[in-house]
Design a protein around this nucleic acid. Structure first.
Lengths: 226, 226
DNA sequence: TCAAAAGTGTTTGTACTACACCCATGC
DNA sequence: GCATGGGTGTAGTACAAACACTTTTGA
């Protein structure tokens, strides 16, 4: 036997905090488990790592299976290693968060879940395992990241209005941001590009439509919201 | 057999980027391996996780064994999961970084190493495994963290002068920082407390001695260096 | 013509930058 | 007394915050 294999190893899993933005609300996708442990309890989606997988592969597998979603913005967050975080034994979770546009996915409870649902981040149910801690850290990371890196687009449609982007930032940061200053900062940073079109079929004045500036210098970018 | 254990699991290790500051230089501690793989090559210190250990326990064990050091500032960085990052098999590394004051430790090559040495971060030798990537990320993290969180003290003596703190920041950030503006920012932030004493036995004017303000509000702290 | 939301510009204040002089100590 | 590094203060500038009016659309 290889010296290398005489060690017993913890199980390795990924857990994913999937953020979505819809109806002017930041939401998280949760699964209601239909198996012990934490049967009938809401948890983050996750899966065990297979030997030939990298973390992102495992995440993609989960997102594909449970959300029918490819090509998702995904970032590694932190690894959680409490000795008793999983009643089944020693499991280490490498937490990730994902940003998706709920419009582009059709969620379906798989064989492992009673139900899959979006929850407003401000109205979460009780969560199983240590998933509250993971969620809190994910939200913190999203909040700190969105002011120095253009990731907001991952949550919006390809084409969007400036008031929509503004509302997204207010939702995520949970503050009010001055409309006019926000607009100036976004425009100065060349964050977005005018399409020359306007959104039609709205109640009031038709807002301009923009798209993300993909040539944006992503490093050295700072939004500096109030 | 438990369904749970039918999966094969990768090995889990921690690797630690140990930063030290001495002779006006930011350094990293490296081990020269005396065993394959990467025999006679410099690498970061690390160890395999034992089943009853948390990451920090494993790190402490390494730091204690190889540095005779307890009570070190330690932070989890990122988990590295390349399939072939270790020629012995599938090993996932949970990278950490540590900040220590080299004065307080006596490094000694253990049975696993030919040698243990400090290297200027700007003059690293070739590193084994994927340790260059880990190092780069650690340095980035240190640089971004030091401007919004008071961790510089971990690298200095209990009592230090403002020019010393200033030089530390210049070393870590690899820039020049205006002396007078730096002083004002540090003082305004109530970052440090005057001891009323001066350093003696120096060539020129005796600089004031300070200590860290432990009551500092660590959240909501921003230094904003140029 | 009115209500509701979108677009635009100006003033004010604060905080960062840049910069120069005096002070203490050892040789 | 001179060289070297340490301590202090100020003026200018740039950017963020605060704020009000006009425009467009549907009802």
């Amino acid at each position: 036997m290889n010296l290398f294999q005489q060690y017993q190893n913890p199980s390795l899993a990924v857990d994913i905090v999937v953020f979505g933005y819809q109806q002017r609300t930041l939401s998280v996708l949760l699964l209601n488990r239909n198996e012990a442990p934490f049967k009938d309890t809401w948890t983050l989606p996750g899966a065990f790592l297979q030997m030939d997988e990298r973390f992102k592969d495992t995440c993609s597998r989960v997102l594909k299976t449970k959300l029918g979603m490819d090509d998702v913005y995904l970032e590694q967050l932190y690894s959680f290693d409490d000795l008793d975080r999983d009643p089944r034994g020693r499991v280490i979770a490498v937490a990730h968060y994902a940003l998706i546009n709920p419009k582009n996915v059709s969620i379906a409870a798989g064989s492992m879940a009673n139900d899959v649902k979006w929850f407003d981040v401000n109205q979460l149910p009780e969560l199983g395992f240590d998933h509250v801690a993971i969620f809190i850290q994910a939200l913190q990371r999203l909040r700190s990241k969105i002011v120095y890196f253009p990731i907001g687009f991952e949550l919006l449609d390809e084409i969007f209005t400036l008031p929509e982007l503004h509302d997204l930032y207010e939702c995520i940061l949970d503050t009010t941001i001055d409309r006019r200053n926000f607009r100036r900062k976004i425009m100065d940073a060349q964050y977005i590009i005018a399409t020359g079109k306007k959104r039609e079929g709205v109640q009031n004045r038709q807002p301009d439509l923009y798209k993300f500036n993909k040539k944006l210098q992503k490093d050295n970018f700072l939004l500096n919201i109030q």
